[in-house]
């Protein structure tokens, strides 16, 4: 019990997102309880009206989805509340649980939200399928050009429609929520996240500005 808890974001965007989640949770919770009671009363009073009960269950399902989506708010708050710091490519990949390709300049430093960026990298590496138990961690290839550091991961996979659509939280799409958060994390540090698919292959690219001086300063401060 001696370890201090992480500070709760209380100001700025992070604090506002936390407050918003709290404020939304109360009415959603009350609505859920009332629908549960309504379903029970309907089942007891008019068991011969399945269509009405079905509508109530539909409303409960919609409410469940809303409840799930507001759980993204504290995770967005955590991204917004994290202070960027210097991290080497090597460390970023180690924390994300991915392999850095050869000739990738592992000591290259970036100035990022460490937890959010490594979570984003991990999401991009693992969210497209269940890895085989015996397979090695995904391989990341690095390009440094035009003032940007780009991390590319390619592998077999396919999305139903446009991968870009996944970032807009389409209902029922597996992994869309994690991708949404990954993009938010990358863009918070001035980066970009792209997804593309062709011929049964999925290609992902995370890219951040390369500012060696800032990154080194962040490391020593």
């Amino acid at each position: 019990m001696n370890e201090a808890l992480p500070p709760e974001p209380s100001s700025g965007v992070a604090g506002a997102l936390g407050t918003l989640r709290h404020a939304l949770a109360d009415p959603l919770s009350a609505a859920g309880l009332k629908l549960e009671l309504l379903e029970r009363r309907l089942a007891a009073a008019s068991p011969g009206e399945p269509a009405l009960a079905e509508r109530v269950r539909g409303a409960q399902s919609d409410l469940g989805l809303a409840g799930r989506l507001i759980d993204l708010l504290p995770r967005l708050a955590a991204i917004a509340g994290e202070e960027p710091s210097a991290i080497s490519l090597d460390d970023l990949c180690r924390v994300a649980g991915v392999r850095l390709g050869e000739n990738s300049e592992p000591r290259t430093r970036l100035f990022l939200r460490r937890v959010a960026a490594s979570d984003a990298l991990r999401t991009l590496s693992w969210c497209f399928g269940v890895p085989e138990p015996a397979c090695p961690p995904p391989l990341v290839r690095v390009e440094i050009a035009a003032g940007r550091v780009s991390l590319r991961i390619e592998g077999p996979g396919a999305f139903g429609a446009s991968p870009e659509r996944l970032f807009h939280l389409p209902r029922g799409e597996e992994g869309a929520e994690e991708l949404f958060l990954a993009r938010a994390a990358v863009e918070s540090d001035g980066g970009t996240l792209e997804l593309a698919q062709k011929d049964g292959l999925v290609a992902t690219c995370l890219s951040w500005p390369h500012q060696p001086a800032v990154a080194d300063e962040g490391l020593t401060s």
Partner: peptide, 12 residues
């Protein structure tokens, strides 16, 4: 019952 959804509120 907590609506904050944070580590802190649950742990506290």
């Amino acid at each position: 019952l907590t609506g904050k959804g944070s580590v802190r509120s649950a742990v506290e």
